[in-house]
Computed example of a mutant assay.
Amino acid sequence: MGEELKVIVFTLAHEQYGVEVERVRTIERMQPLTRVPKTPAFVKGVINLRGVVVPVIDLRGRFQLPESDYTDNSRIIIVAVKEMEVGLIVDSANDVLDVNTDSIEDPPEIVGGIRAKYLRGVAKLSGGNLLVLLNLEEVLNKSEIVQLEQLEA
């Protein structure tokens, strides 16, 4: 019997994704972003979160999904990636679920247009629904993390 994994469920382009609760620091409402020049287009800027400068990326842009306007449901999920905090803009953050690790399968090559390297796996939920789990280390590769760390400095 596998272990229970707690995940935050969020929506991106009408698909459900999850990230481990232990990686999430906080979930914030959308707020004004300070744009930073010479960063990739999906890096939307930085925010001042309780005195800490946090880089923010738009997951739609990162995954090359169609952009959409931010709504009252849009959220910034602050996650820990390799000893730094990064904000991820998502369409909405919905729920916390317990996922049995036995129900997680390796991701197919492409899910919803997103390449497998960004995915940790796909969890089969009750009712036949699927939940795509993100691999945060790949969502931001090493060179991008170095770039973001320079923003924090």
Rank of each mutant, 00 (worst) to 15 (best):
G112R: 13
L59E: 07
L133H: 01
V53T: 15
K117M: 09
G45D: 04
V54Q: 07
G87A: 12
V9N: 04
V86L: 12
R62E: 06
S103F: 01
E22G: 05
K6C: 10
Q64A: 14
L88C: 11
N129D: 15
N100G: 10
T34Y: 00
S74N: 09
I114H: 03
P108H: 13
E28V: 13
G128R: 11
K117L: 14
R25Q: 15
G113K: 03
R50T: 13
V86N: 08
V99C: 02
G121M: 09
R120F: 15
K44T: 09
I104C: 03
G128A: 05
Y118Q: 05
I57N: 05
L88A: 00
Q64F: 03
K38S: 14
R25M: 10
G2W: 03
R25S: 13
T26Q: 11
R62G: 00
V54T: 15
E105I: 07
S143P: 00
G2D: 07
E105C: 05
V9A: 01
V122G: 02
F10D: 06
L97M: 09
G127Q: 12
R29N: 15
T11H: 00
R120S: 11
M1D: 12
V19T: 05
R75V: 02
G87M: 11
I77A: 01
L136A: 03
V46R: 07
G121C: 08
R35V: 06
G87R: 06
E138R: 08
T39W: 11
V139Q: 12
G61K: 14
L130A: 11
L65F: 04
L140A: 10
L131Q: 04
L134T: 02
L49C: 12
G51K: 12
L136Q: 10
L119K: 10
V111A: 05
Y118R: 11
V36I: 15
G127F: 09
L5T: 00
D58P: 15
T11S: 10
R29Y: 13
S68C: 11
R23K: 11
L88P: 07
E138I: 07
G61L: 08
E28T: 04
V132H: 01
L65Y: 12
V132P: 00
E85C: 09
P37V: 08
E22L: 15
S103I: 02
A80Y: 07
L5K: 03
V139D: 13
D91L: 12
L140T: 11
S68Q: 08
L12W: 00
T71L: 13
A80K: 13
L148E: 12
A153V: 14
E83H: 09
E4A: 06
M84V: 15
V96Y: 01
D106G: 08
T11M: 02
E149C: 06
A93K: 09
T101W: 01
E67P: 15
N100Y: 03
D98H: 12
S103D: 10
